[in-house]
Write a protein that binds this DNA or RNA. Sequence first.
DNA 1: CTGAAAGCGCTTACAG
DNA 2: CTGAAAGCGCTTACAG
Lengths: 338, 338
Amino acid sequence: MSPTPRRSTILEVAHLAGASKTSVSRYFGEERGRLSPSLQAQIAQAADTLGYQPNLMARGLKGGRSKLIGMLVADIRNPFSVAITHGVEQACRQYGYSLVVCNTDNDPEQERQHLDLLGAYQVEGLVVNASGSPERQLHTFISQGTPIVLLDREVDHVEVEVVGLDNHLAIDMALEHLTEQGYQAVLYVSEAPQQSSPRQKRLSRFSHAAEQHGLNYATSLLATSDSTATLQALSDFLTTQQQHACAVLCGNGNATLTVTRLFQQLSLPLGKVGLMGIDELDWCALVPPGITTLAQPTDAIGKTAVQCLVHRIAPHTSSMPTTLCFAPTLIERGSTQR
Amino acid sequence: MSPTPRRSTILEVAHLAGASKTSVSRYFGEERGRLSPSLQAQIAQAADTLGYQPNLMARGLKGGRSKLIGMLVADIRNPFSVAITHGVEQACRQYGYSLVVCNTDNDPEQERQHLDLLGAYQVEGLVVNASGSPERQLHTFISQGTPIVLLDREVDHVEVEVVGLDNHLAIDMALEHLTEQGYQAVLYVSEAPQQSSPRQKRLSRFSHAAEQHGLNYATSLLATSDSTATLQALSDFLTTQQQHACAVLCGNGNATLTVTRLFQQLSLPLGKVGLMGIDELDWCALVPPGITTLAQPTDAIGKTAVQCLVHRIAPHTSSMPTTLCFAPTLIERGSTQR
DNA sequence: CTGAAAGCGCTTACAG
DNA sequence: CTGAAAGCGCTTACAG
């Protein structure tokens, strides 16, 4: 049996290879080229027999560079967030960073803890999809020289790049589509906008644009765990507007899910009563006759966020992206065909 | 303006507080109680004005404990994996660990790199939902004293706990349900079983159990990017078995998604032709008349995996869980009602 | 091309 | 109750 199992160190490799710590360090660092071929071979061999891996914690300590990027996600179970996270992860890999993802479950307390943690692990940059308003903590990062980029949601008084959807454009595109399809009255269903700037923007733009289009309209906010209020709002709306062609516009994927359930509960004919959602989901094509959506370019959003960060961490490595605000893509299906 | 921005250190706090490094270290460690109230107050104050956070890299270096658990996920975009990951994450928090999640996108090369990385960051334990057969690397971890637990998928020659669904039971429950509902012929659709032990087990159990139940049956493997072969298999099956009541059983969420699309393509009446899937998904209730599923207890699976790990890392902290193999829950819907 | 030595920010015996 | 000092595993001037 082996003795107390533990990872081997640079010193052990050095001894076995008959070389110095310095040379072993060079071998695993950027300066391998400086070593003679024979020394390289000895070290390679020694490292292999010991199963040596450099300790990145130690490297980070000395060099001050953890090669880690941190990410805060408000709700990892939301497929939209997953898609973005996937894009962020790929971009990190590409730039030579590893990503530590922390899910906050929309809980400001968890958010606080995770930010502490990421700071403690010396992340070199931070992608933040905020839950609460972690103003103070974010400022601490910034003042310590750790760059931050905000994803989707703005945070008051934190003046950094915000990468995400062009919310005004999204609402405009949705209303344009609905109008073209002949709908005359639109109900907008959103989750509570509180801390979420995109929800606020979409909501206020909706009223504004619906007015411009000469539509009849109303809005309804989703309660967290109970959709009876929305059910009521929906049937009220349909009653009030019964002489008009009605449609429902959903502010995000969760809203679309809830409203689709309500349509089924009320046996509303999809299309005759229009339905459209922001965020594309796996199943939108599956509920007959298909639900029309506005898809976000999740990969591009994730990659852009990382590019911003990398540009701040090491300005020469990558240029600042030019677009931070992305247009959605209309995916037309039967639910907006009268 | 501040000078070169950087995080403050224990030494700076000590100076400002008029205390020693040792005391500051104790304040932020387990031994705060040993400090006099006045010293505690001075340190707290100094740390606050400097925005000090202990450097966990340094702490990990000295103490040898990173307080990190690593997790390898084969496909983070699969909602089932997300649900499990969420459970793992919660359990880690509960035991005082942080979780580093690495997605391998089912790519053995990425898997290899991520394992190197996790080793380099000195994770204290590893939850592995394998993509390939990283036998050798996993053995390195084990021989270095880093415990591992496998999630869902077994890895050849790696003899550690495997936490996941009771695959035989799942197939048995599915066939029992389908039989009770009067279906006489069942087509089983699975993704390619190659490296995935659950897929293998479900597949072989299916044939065995279908035989036992006296059912007519066939199986079909999904191609990665193209479902025409499955479309063919499905219509062939329905033709061959046309004098029997037919149903399709899907081996996981992806299969259910693909097959549901095919049902729509072929305008098959859900229920009259039965449809049932392993894995519960958001939208299964939404496709009329609802798709019957077998739901996995994702939270329990995630938590159990972590409990195994923690038990190995620090045996006194938690006991070894008794169940590693979980029963699914039948969620009955219209798609299996003739 | 190679190495001895200082030091990164912590923790932990040890001593008082 | 408090602190001086050694050392965790690395990297990086500096020297040769």
